[in-house]
């Protein structure tokens, strides 16, 4: 089964207010369950926007996105929210952890919004925390964790709902070589062990070298 299927995706947008609109275009992209793919492109080429489109955070102007076989509708926001919560994990460049909630609660909230609560969900969350070495810090607020620990929390939150697809936006940015390698290795291994496909957007050559498949994004074209 395909974790992700994209067809004829078009999104016009302006990077800043008043700037000339540009067009992000992706004709076709298929990602099998458990597969891993890196999207390469320079800064400002629309990588993050593309990930937001796939996550249903942004609406495309045209085209189709299927997550785990389900069509991400362009209009029904509630359905996009539900599908995102159930089928997709997102590791943001700046982690985007909720600072008012502990590590464990960050994961619990993601489970709650996906409608995955109960004994089995609790057990899965605790296993994931232990697997990523976060169990001793589960009661801490994110601000009291190191950069590496926060990254692992972001990864745990992305995986806590057993998603079909994990999106990662520049996960190695601002990391030195050793930490970048470790972070990337962990991300890939955990996705494999949990059966989630991984789509990573980066311009970091260190990350791209580690990936079995890399796809170059087209440069942005002025909007018609």
């Amino acid at each position: 089964m395909l974790a992700l299927r994209v067809r004829d995706l078009v999104k016009r947008h302006s990077a800043t207010a008043g700037a000339a609109p540009v067009e992000i275009r992706l004709d076709a992209l298929d990602l099998e369950a458990g597969a891993q793919l890196a999207l390469r492109g320079p800064s400002g080429c629309g990588k993050t926007t593309l990930l937001h489109l796939i996550a249903g955070i942004l609406r495309p102007d045209s085209g189709e996105i299927h997550l785990a076989g389900e069509l991400l509708p362009a209009t029904a926001e509630n359905t996009r929210d539900r599908l995102r919560a159930r089928h997709l994990g997102y590791v943001f460049q700046t982690f985007n952890l909720l600072q008012g909630f502990t590590v464990r609660e960050n994961l619990q909230l993601a489970q709650r919004f996906a409608g995955r609560e109960g004994t089995e969900a609790d057990a899965h969350r605790e296993r994931l925390l232990a697997e990523l070495g976060l169990a001793p810090f589960a009661h801490r607020l994110p601000a009291r964790l190191s950069h590496g620990q926060q990254q692992r929390v972001a990864l745990a939150r992305a995986l806590v709902n057993r998603p079909a697809l994990v999106l990662a936006d520049e996960p190695t940015a601002s990391l030195d070589d050793a930490h970048a390698a470790a972070a990337l290795s962990l991300l890939r291994e955990v996705c494999v062990s949990h059966g989630a496909a991984l789509l990573l957007a980066t311009h970091d050559e260190r990350a791209l070298r580690a990936f079995p498949a890399v796809r170059d994004l087209k440069p942005l074209a002025p909007a018609a």
């Binding site: 955070i57 926001e77 929210d81 919560a85 985007n96």
Partner: peptide
């Protein structure tokens, strides 16, 4: 600014706008 970011994060992890 902090609140808007929190709202955006909550939406990104699946919270619905009416919530």
């Amino acid at each position: 600014a902090q609140r808007r970011r929190d709202w955006a994060i909550l939406r990104a992890i699946g919270a619905r706008a009416p919530t």
